[in-house]
Simulated scan of single mutants.
Amino acid sequence: MRVTISDVARAAGVSKTTVSRVLNTRAEVDAATAARVREVIDVLGYVPSSGAVGLARGSSQTIGMLTPSLTWPWMGEVLQGVADTVEAAGYGMLLFTCNRGADSVAHFATQVSARAFDGLLVILPEGTLDTVTALHRRGMPVVLVDDHGHRPAFPSVATTNHAGGASAAARLLATGRSRPLVITGPARFGCVRERLDGFTDALPTGLVVAGEFTEDTGRDAVVRALAEGREFDSVFAHNDLIAAGALRALRAAGRSVPDDVALVGFDDLPMARHTEPPLTTVRQPMRAMGEAAARMLLAGLGGGPMPDEPLVLPTELVVRRSA
């Protein structure tokens, strides 16, 4: 059976608050009482939870992080940036996903009620913006990573999706392409609209196919465009998975990349370096976004000001052989 802080308090003849103050090395406890509590802790083999350690100081020294599925291809980069930053500051991290929809959100709400963490980083699961906004309004420090163009009422870290789309168009124009096929992610995401607007402002096209951020979307869009006899000399894919599917379909149809069709993706996932040919793509600074969001939240927890405007980190065009 796990030893609890109540067991320690009972054995030492003190309150749970006193035990917590000893754990936090607070000066309010006299030396004799503190020594007795530490002796009981050693005898019972008590291992304090983060909640017990934080009881007296009013802080759990823990950051919460709410995400959609961990299978998103760039999720690991964001999480690593967050983890490196919060651990260096002496904080832990609780990770919550929304794989089970309403059940996941309900479980997350119980942890909020229990004050299991001091502040929240969010990669916004669909349908949770109102919930997260309400938490912020009730006093929970919140920072959003990758705002998808939502521009929430709390601090966020974003990237230059419009400029990224424009840089993809500029690259295709520089290689002499003028008839692009654009394959987007879901139009409900603000980042998709920004990438499309940035691209078409520089290189207009009437050939735009919307889908999901998947290889199947890229493959199906190219197969359909070829079957319909649509003429295109380039493809701008709204992420690298779409680009990989488009590349597969082009090669299956006997189209050479980049000689017949140039191809540009978005994200710069590790796989982009290993396609054949390697993929020209727009790099999102995902790890840097995680680091910046964590630093912003920690600064707010330390009493510093939280910014009113999003922190926007630049994208970067990475030129490889596909364009």
Rank of each mutant, 00 (worst) to 15 (best):
A11C: 10
A12H: 06
A12M: 11
G13T: 03
G13M: 07
G13S: 06
G13P: 02
S15R: 15
S15K: 14
K16Y: 11
K16M: 13
K16L: 06
K16N: 11
K16Q: 15
T17N: 11
T17C: 05
T17I: 11
T18L: 07
T18P: 03
T18A: 08
T18S: 13
V19I: 01
V19P: 01
S20H: 08
S20R: 12
S20G: 11
S20F: 14
R21M: 06
R21Y: 02
R21L: 04
L23H: 00
L23E: 00
L23D: 05
N24L: 06
T25S: 09
T25M: 01
T25Y: 04
T25H: 13
T25L: 07
T25Q: 15
R26A: 12
R26F: 04
R26I: 06
R26K: 10
A27V: 14
E28Y: 01
E28P: 02
E28V: 00
E28G: 02
V29D: 14
V29E: 13
V29W: 12
D30C: 07
D30K: 15
A31F: 04
A31K: 04
A31M: 01
A32S: 10
A32P: 04
T33R: 07
T33M: 09
T33H: 04
A34E: 11
A35V: 07
A35R: 15
R36A: 15
R36C: 13
R36H: 11
R36M: 06
V37C: 12
V37G: 08
R38V: 00
R38D: 03
R38W: 02
E39N: 13
E39P: 05
E39V: 09
V40T: 10
V40L: 02
V40Q: 07
I41S: 06
I41Y: 08
I41V: 08
I41C: 11
I41T: 09
I41R: 12
I41H: 05
D42M: 01
D42R: 09
D42N: 07
D42V: 00
D42C: 00
D42W: 03
V43T: 15
V43W: 08
V43A: 15
L44G: 13
L44V: 10
L44D: 12
L44K: 10
Y46H: 10
